[in-house]
Nucleic acid binder design. Structure first.
Lengths: 228, 228
DNA sequence: GACCAAATTAACCATCTCGTACAATTTGAT
DNA sequence: ATCAAATTGTACGAGATGGTTAATTTGGTC
């Protein structure tokens, strides 16, 4: 009966509306993510967000206080969704080598398929992490990502397939760097060097390269996949 | 006699000033770079830029037309300076292995020491490369970077120390990814995972890691430095 | 069905910000 | 002497923009 999905809260008729606070907030956040991701914090216009919503500008301020409050909540939601997917990966039952490769491929593809999330993180970095600093929940969520990787590396060390001195944080940094840069700098990179690496085959090639460059220094036997 | 450097164009005395269009423009551009890098294109205020200048707002519009024109010129200047330093590196006389390592270390350190440049590129990517697309000179300058790398790789192949299938554009992409991400995501990364990798030793460690992860897949004999 | 807090609507305001107009003076080259 | 280019200084207007005031509707409760 009730809209269990995320469908439109109201049929946009002016009079005769139903109360649905949750759906209204979700609607606003969805639009806000899109607009903030496209234009940045200062570039985004509250009026534009409101106009794209099924509700009114007043509601935006009613639920989120001000523009920065809306931005903060948008950022939180974006991180929450990403982290959820990472947890669902369930890598602990795979053998370490396969688990690591799968984590890399997942991260690379996930970032590639969610440019809006990447852009929000870029924007947040432009603002020196001011708003992430205000959200303890985001920080706590993300630390789990390195814990997950650390477990994989430890299992690998114990089985003798990974090097002893492989640092989880550094590996995570490297995976993030390539996966993130691949999306964040697409515009300038493509403009300068052409979009060969941005094509379907190019992206596959980069993903393989990411796997290889991460695994080679970590795996004891340097034979990541089908290299001769 | 004339100020051959980039010193202040006027002694800020109201009357009795010298004509020095070049110095005035340089002064404006220097301030603009600082403010745009700090606040982004939409976040930057023309009035603030003008106030920090040795000259007036009127002059900003006199020389650069409008805010976007100033931003475009700022971006051009930033790229120009970077590219100049890359050319000065003069890697063609080093043996391939050393040349590649030096290029990686230079890029990593240079980006690290010039966060404002990184931030301008981030901002430009937020704007989908709109302004870089308008500047053919920037594109031409930067393509040279891959040519330089390609020469190194070719020499390495010919000498039998590099693999045959090493792709210059992919290697450049990888070097850029780590060097860029290291600066661009400092704020969020440090907030979430602590600033261990951001310390002096952490940065040295990452630089070494960048060298290792790039060289290992490229060099035929997988022994990048002093690994046992 | 009266009542009230939460939800929602529509019009409104204060301010910021880009860019310009106006009015002049100074420089430097010919 | 002359004149265009360079520079100063101020004030201001139009429109964009973040945020608010005031009034209405809903839905649950007694």
């Amino acid at each position: 009966m009730a809209n269990s999905g995320g469908t439109k809260p109201k049929s946009s008729r002016k009079n005769s509306w139903k109360q649905n606070p949750q759906a209204v907030q979700e609607n606003i956040l969805r639009v806000a993510q899109e607009v903030f991701a496209k234009n940045g914090l200062s570039g985004a216009r509250v009026d534009e967000i409101a106009a794209m919503t099924e509700t009114s500008k007043r509601m935006v301020y009613y639920y989120f206080g001000d523009k920065e409050g809306l931005y903060r909540r948008t950022l939180e939601e974006a991180y929450r969704k990403v982290r959820q997917k990472e947890v669902d990966l369930d890598l602990d039952h795979l053998d370490p080598r396969a688990a690591l490769e799968r984590l890399i491929r997942f991260t690379f593809r996930h970032h590639s398929e969610n440019p809006d999330f990447i852009r929000l993180v870029m924007i947040e970095n432009i603002h020196h992490g001011t708003y992430l600093a205000q959200s303890a929940t985001i920080r706590d969520m993300n630390r789990g990502a390195v814990d997950q990787l650390e477990r994989i590396l430890k299992r690998g060390r114990d089985e003798g397939v990974f090097r002893q001195d492989a640092d989880p944080l550094t590996i995570h940094w490297q995976i993030s760097a390539m996966s993130f840069f691949n999306v964040s700098n697409r515009a300038t990179f493509s403009l300068i060097f052409g979009d060969r690496l941005n094509s379907a085959t190019g992206q596959r090639q980069l993903e393989d390269w990411a796997v290889e460059t991460v695994l080679r220094p970590v795996v004891v036997d340097p034979r990541p996949s089908d290299q001769g």
